[in-house]
Design a protein around this nucleic acid. Structure first.
Lengths: 276, 276
DNA sequence: CTAAATTGTCCCGTATACCGGGATTCTATT
DNA sequence: AATAGAATCCCGGTATACGGGACAATTTAG
């Protein structure tokens, strides 16, 4: 008995005419997928394992719905469940997918020549890093380019106390920055920025001049200058930096070095298709 | 034997007679989520960027459906799209989620004492690694335990030529192994196993004796012995190994060392809740 | 340069797959 | 053993996603 849908046939023709931009909402698409992603985002480094009730509370979804959702996600491998009746956590499959993302980045190939050139030009160590929401993960280095497809070293450091981290952070949407700040800013040296308000100012400054600096905020005696790299959709997702011992890099040099770093970073962005 | 549904209601019969016409299966849950995951799995290290048509072809879904699906996934951040009308690839958000999975693993905490004990007992270097579908990623080492929450080094090597890799691979479901083999086995030394059939045999052997060995298959002159680690659902997802210079470890020692490695690996599994 | 073929996007009625209140079962606590 | 609280299951009703097909934007062929 389906009496539900009975739409007047006359209206149909008119449909094509009215194409006012306001009526067509950005329509988030599949409703269930929105829910799934929402659930995934409930997990974080401080919320590693959550019960059904906790997930309900944080998402606002009804218990029954959430339960079905979680079961399906577990079945699909997006979530793992501690034993049979216990808490949920992010699934191992996500780790696998994440590593595939990293391995498939064009950044490895495209950035190599620029990273090496930058190393030769400055005579200092150059780092290439991507952002994972919390850390700046180093995927390339002058003199020892990393090849993610055949085994590699990966080094990572918190984003708030490294030049690459701040260069990326400065261009993230507010939501990302808020999430980042929510987990706290650990101190590493006596110059590490641990006050969220101060960091926001620092990022503002970084945006305004186009490059970031690290004054021994992670490792004592080590200064760095970094500039952001954009993917072909224009989003900042990586950065390059030049590092040097503090006593070897007088403040007067920073501006000069920064220009070179920015130039190379922009070249990498272009190689990735940004603005093409 | 199997009673599918215990609802012998006579009343309902009129309304929905056909209960088990097509779906007698354990009901995979949200249909759309199954599709989403299927699409995610179409991507791999050899299929980095795919067009709508290619994805349709590989999944078998109709164009229209796939298009809607891809749009929603892009909106959700699960996929990124090169420019506006171009290919799709796995989204950066997946990388972020993957790193969260790694950071949230109890393995870091729980395994540390056992890894260190194993290092003291054998006097050799001990590695703790997890599997990402392709590589064995080292997340812990005797003498220098890695803390994923505050910055770290990660070293990874292909699974087919390391003891940790083979220990994990030996216990993976067929589908995972097939995917792994499909991308080829790179040669590193003259003992590296590059023939899929030979590797399958080797894994069979590994299963039967409970530990794996690496006879200089990745680095010349370096032998290793590894044993699998299970999470609390019983799945093998990690392994520990002991490495030593080939000339220092006579074949007669392998059995003795393997026993110790297995013992510690099992202890870690238990600490994670396996069999509790 | 035009035409044909291919590929991406949009529309819409329909069928179905999901929603969520509430009953039921299971586990933890007193 | 009894109670409370959480997780799981059920089922009617309806919102939602499906997918054929039209249309638009490319690319390739002529």
């Amino acid at each position: 008995m389906m009496i539900i849908s009975r739409i007047p046939e006359q209206v149909i023709i008119l449909n094509r005419i009215d194409r006012p931009p306001t009526t067509t909402r950005p329509d988030e698409g599949l409703k269930s997928l929105v829910k799934v992603v929402r659930v995934l985002h409930v997990f974080s480094r401080t919320a590693r394992a959550l019960s059904l009730a906790e997930i309900c509370q944080r998402t606002g979804y009804p218990r029954s719905t959430t339960h079905r959702l979680l079961s399906s996600m577990r079945e699909a491998g997006l979530l793992d469940q501690d034993r049979n009746r216990d808490r949920y956590r992010l699934g191992l499959k996500l780790y696998e997918l994440g590593n595939t993302v990293l391995a498939n980045m064009d950044l490895h190939r495209e950035a190599r020549p620029y990273v090496e050139a930058l190393g030769r030009l400055t005579g200092q160590v150059v780092h290439l890093a991507v952002f994972d929401g919390r850390h700046a993960v180093v995927i390339g280095k002058s003199e020892s380019q990393i090849d993610a497809t055949s085994g590699a070293f990966l080094e990572s450091a918190p984003a708030h106390c490294t030049s690459v981290g701040k260069a990326i952070l400065a261009y993230q949407p507010d939501a990302v920055l808020d999430t980042f700040l929510a987990e706290g800013l650990a101190r590493f040296t006596d110059t590490t920025i641990t006050d969220p308000a101060v960091l926001r100012q620092e990022l503002e400054l970084t945006r305004s001049r186009g490059y970031s600096i690290d004054q021994a905020e992670h490792q004592p005696g080590l200064n760095c200058v970094a500039a952001p790299i954009r993917d072909l959709s224009g989003r900042v997702f990586a950065a390059v930096s030049v590092s040097g011992a503090a006593w070897k890099t007088p403040p007067s040099d920073v501006g000069r070095v920064a220009k070179i770093v920015i130039h190379h970073a922009d070249a990498i962005s272009r190689a990735l298709g940004h603005g093409a």
